[in-house]
Amino acid sequence: MDLITLFTLAAGLSMDAFAVAVCKGLAMQRMTIKKAAAVAGWFGSFQALMPAVGYMLGIRFRDEIAAVDHWISFLLLLLIGANMIREAIWGKTEESNDSLAPKEMFILAAATSVDALAVGITFAFLDVNIFTAIVVIGTVTFILSMAGVKAGNRFGMKYKAKSEIAGGAVLILLGIKILAEHIGIF
């Protein structure tokens, strides 16, 4: 996987974290760099950890499903992307507070990184340097989450749904690209 595709994937994966970071920023009476870094640290760490876990799971079962790996990658990315778009359009508004308590942040970070776990499984079937992938995904998520806290604190919920729709569309397009490459279209 080339770096441009990896950065695009990382941006798509980070949109859930960005949206929740916007909510966190919205709820903060006074946003500080320390608070924004705490939110971004949770999200960036989980977004980096989950693909590594998914990759290990995928490696474990790679030989058993090698013949259909591109279809699995396509379907996982399609489902994750479609779910992001569905939630952005019809999902309920997330309630947020300015709490940065470890229990709450753990739950939010885990919930926003489940899609990264699924993507990590697909990495086991692709030509991906997992170390580079987790560094890029974690870093992009950290940066976009910092920006999300700041944007939420400054502008509110105006762009939350649009960012989730864009992230979902990116994941769907990447799934189509993977499938097309494996069946010989590209």
Rank of each mutant, 00 (worst) to 15 (best):
G175E: 12
M157Y: 14
A111N: 01
F123E: 09
W42C: 06
G41H: 00
A118F: 13
K103F: 09
A116D: 07
F142H: 02
V135H: 09
W71I: 15
I85W: 11
T112Y: 10
G58F: 10
T5H: 13
A88M: 05
T132N: 12
R86V: 04
E64N: 11
T141L: 06
A38S: 06
F131G: 00
A166L: 15
V114S: 12
F61G: 01
V68F: 05
I165Q: 01
A166R: 02
V149Q: 11
V149G: 05
D69Q: 03
M1V: 08
I172E: 08
M31G: 02
L26T: 06
L100A: 09
F186R: 13
I80N: 07
R60W: 09
I59L: 15
G138C: 12
G138I: 10
G167D: 11
E164V: 11
I33F: 03
G81Y: 08
N153D: 03
A109M: 07
R86I: 01
I85E: 09
K160A: 08
K34C: 03
Y55D: 10
I137E: 05
A147P: 03
T8Q: 04
F142Y: 15
V128H: 07
L77Q: 07
I65R: 00
I176W: 01
L77C: 00
D127Q: 05
L78A: 13
A180V: 00
V114D: 04
K24N: 14
K162D: 01
V170P: 04
H182N: 14
A67D: 13
E181H: 14
A116T: 07
V136M: 07
L79Q: 02
S14M: 03
I107P: 02
I72V: 14
A82Y: 02
P102Q: 04
M157C: 03
A116N: 13
L3G: 12
F155C: 12
Q29I: 01
W71L: 12
I4M: 13
K162S: 10
I178D: 01
E64Q: 10
L108I: 08
A52F: 15
T8F: 09
S45A: 15
V22S: 00
R62V: 13
F123P: 12
W90G: 11
F43L: 03
T141H: 07
I33G: 00
T5S: 14
A67S: 12
A38Y: 10
V22L: 01
I143N: 12
I4V: 14
P51S: 09
S163Q: 02
K160C: 00
L57F: 11
M1S: 13
G41S: 01
A82K: 00
I89L: 14
A169P: 01
A169I: 15
K103I: 12
G184K: 08
F186E: 14
S45L: 15
T141F: 08
D2W: 12
A37W: 03
L9G: 07
M56K: 06
A101R: 04
I134S: 10
A161S: 15
I183T: 08
G156W: 05
E164R: 15
